[in-house]
Design a protein around this nucleic acid. Structure first.
Lengths: 137, 137
DNA sequence: ATACATATATGTAAAATGCACATAGAGTAT
DNA sequence: ATACTCTATGTGCATTTTACATATATGTAT
């Protein structure tokens, strides 16, 4: 039944390693902004869309709190939608500042992708190819 | 002297946005493990190598604390090196568990890269290509 | 009434991280 | 000698982020 000594699994979880969160902090922010750039939406719906971006068991609290924070920062705006049956929805719209912020995020993520490429190049045994990096901002 | 109205910069920083950290939490861990897989090293030296991986102004405290934590978790081992002049160095070696953990990290990062690819596909206007997943919406 | 799905929100604790500061050996200049 | 600097390792504290549990309210079905 149990294959003793057969701990061939390199999975890590089985070895008592801490779980790894390979997403950046506030990853939810660009995901929400991208969603809202496509069409206006509200928390409950955005939760489902976020699942497609690596938030498997999305916690409602985290999402709603993030949305309110984003509104404080002026990257989204909201208004209550009560015109239909059921509990009211807080409908969110992306602002111009939000679009800029999304662009800003995209640039950072792109740069991080290059860094990860370097990581994998070393990891798989190929040498690092440090570009001349003229774009020093 | 000051070009009024000329705020063409879409950089974000200038608009009062919060800075974006596009790296995952504990990103330092796989970076250290990868470095140690190449050759044994110590904190002060690892600090310089980490700079190449997006830790511009590496904080010593963060690095040393991370190293001690990693030793507690058994992914690295250390011993004092006092055979030379200057202050003693704590030399670090990667363990077998450390190699496994690095592999584990690599898998997670690879998966996150796919997620980011999806993000950029949407961001640049091309459709999402979800594996086979009959999208319910 | 009770249960359930929808919808939004807060309280608290843990974890990660930046920043400031502390300690100490060794070499060099005065 | 002692002062200064570079190397080298660490701790304390505050802030931010996040997970988890819990609270509230509306409408529909039974």
């Amino acid at each position: 039944m149990n294959n003793e000594g057969q701990e061939r699994e390199v999975e890590g979880r089985e070895r008592g390693f801490r779980a790894v969160e390979a997403r950046p902090r506030n990853w939810l922010v660009p995901v929400i902004l991208l969603s809202l750039r496509e069409w206006n939406s509200y928390g409950y719906e955005l939760m489902e869309r976020a699942s497609a971006f690596g938030f498997e068991a999305m916690n409602p609290g985290t999402l709603y709190r993030t949305l309110r924070q984003m509104e404080k920062e002026g990257v989204v705006e909201s208004s209550w939608e009560t015109s239909r049956g059921g509990p009211a929805r807080r409908m969110y719209t992306i602002t111009d500042a939000g679009r800029s912020y999304l662009d800003f995020w995209a640039k950072s993520l792109e740069q991080y992708q290059h860094t990860m490429d370097n990581f994998f190049r070393l990891y798989t045994g190929r040498p690092l190819q440090e570009k001349e990096d003229s774009g020093d901002e």
